[in-house]
Amino acid sequence: MRIASFNVENLFDRARLLAADDWATHRTLLDTYAKLTRTLQHAAYSATDKANIVKWLVALGLEKADSGTYVILRQNRGRLITRPKTGGMIVVADGRPDWVGWLELKTQAVTELAVRHTAQVVHDVAADVLGVVEAESRIALQRFNVDLLRPISDRIYGHIMLIDGNDDRGIDVGVMTRGDHEIQRIVSHVDDADLAGPIFGRDCPEYTVALPSGATLLVMVNHFKSKGYGSARDSNRRRQRQAERVAEIYRARRAEGIANIVVLGDLNDTPDSAPLAPLLVGSAAAPTDLKDIATHPSFDDGGWPGTYTTGRAGNKIDYILCSPAVFAAVTASGVFRKGVWTSSGRWEMYPTLTREQDAASDHAAIWADVDL
């Protein structure tokens, strides 16, 4: 059987801020959006809260209207703000109970060719169990499976599951499995929290997959906190909390006697990073025996160790981590890059991939053949 992980970067629609070219500017806007979203949930708005709400709405381009270039302010019942004819904004709500609404990121369609290249990658990788990162919804995955994959493949996916996570940008994680690899059990960790708050920005779902051999495979799909916005200190700490929790879940399942486990997805950091150490290494008191597929003798990275954009070592952020039983059963493994844009000719691209915006993803797919 083949196991794979692929960050599809949204199949049909993507937040405009995430697709923007001027990342330095839009990183700041995403940080502002996150801070404002958190503040709007306060039960009571202090004078400081109200001043920040106005400041951040202006920064997001919402001073004159509820719809800006990148963000929409939904005021469904009651009012958060008013805009006097003399100009400016006034926060009229005294707290969350006074109004019903939210902030919403505007989306834009992914190019048709980008979607078709994504389908081609999924077809060519030909995984029996595919962990999917940054998909909009289960319905989007179903549409992709039927409308895009079926016309080019003689074997589409019989089972598709995605659980809505905590990310209000609509970038969640899921799994697609072939018909003879039934999803038997699902456990969500969307509500896992510690003293600092929710742990997972999306979820860390556990999927128990039945194999034709009669064995089962436990698949844990992850998308850790990005380095894209927020302070480096905060994002590092968030990834470390996520790594610690995934390691705890993994050790618990191994203690229950489950031998065949893979932890896969976009962990947004490198193998030597401190935030990932609790998962990749563990500690003397709490070791982990997970092995990165990139360390397997069969692994073929085509000469480029990274899995994101340029393929350099500092962009090695996508993983298939295997329990000892799975790692021992690996027969082949590697990176599939044909859907990733390169202007330098570092790897072969699809002949129809002639513009960066038509790339299937910024991420390469990673895969492993396993004899279970």
Rank of each mutant, 00 (worst) to 15 (best):
M1Q: 12
R2F: 11
S5E: 05
V8K: 00
A24H: 14
D31A: 01
H42Q: 07
D49M: 04
K50A: 11
K50Q: 14
N52A: 13
E63D: 15
A65E: 13
N76C: 05
N76W: 08
R77K: 10
R83S: 04
P84E: 09
P84K: 12
T86L: 15
G88K: 10
A93T: 07
R96F: 12
W99I: 07
V100H: 13
L103V: 03
L105Q: 04
V110Q: 10
R116A: 13
A126W: 03
A127S: 10
V132H: 07
V133L: 07
I139D: 15
V146P: 04
D147C: 08
L148M: 11
L148K: 04
R150E: 09
S153K: 10
I160N: 02
L162M: 14
I163F: 00
D164T: 05
G174Q: 10
D180I: 08
H181F: 14
V190C: 07
A193W: 04
G197A: 12
G197T: 12
D203S: 07
E206T: 07
G214W: 08
L218D: 04
M220W: 11
K225H: 10
S226L: 02
Y229V: 01
S231H: 02
R237A: 15
E244F: 12
I249H: 10
A252C: 09
E256W: 02
G257T: 06
V262E: 06
G265C: 06
D266R: 06
P275E: 01
L276D: 09
G282P: 01
P297Q: 07
D301G: 11
T309N: 13
T309F: 11
G311W: 01
V330S: 02
A332C: 14
S333H: 01
P351Y: 07
R355H: 12
R355S: 13
E356D: 15
S361R: 01
D362Y: 04
D362W: 01
A364W: 00
D369R: 05
V370S: 05
D371H: 02
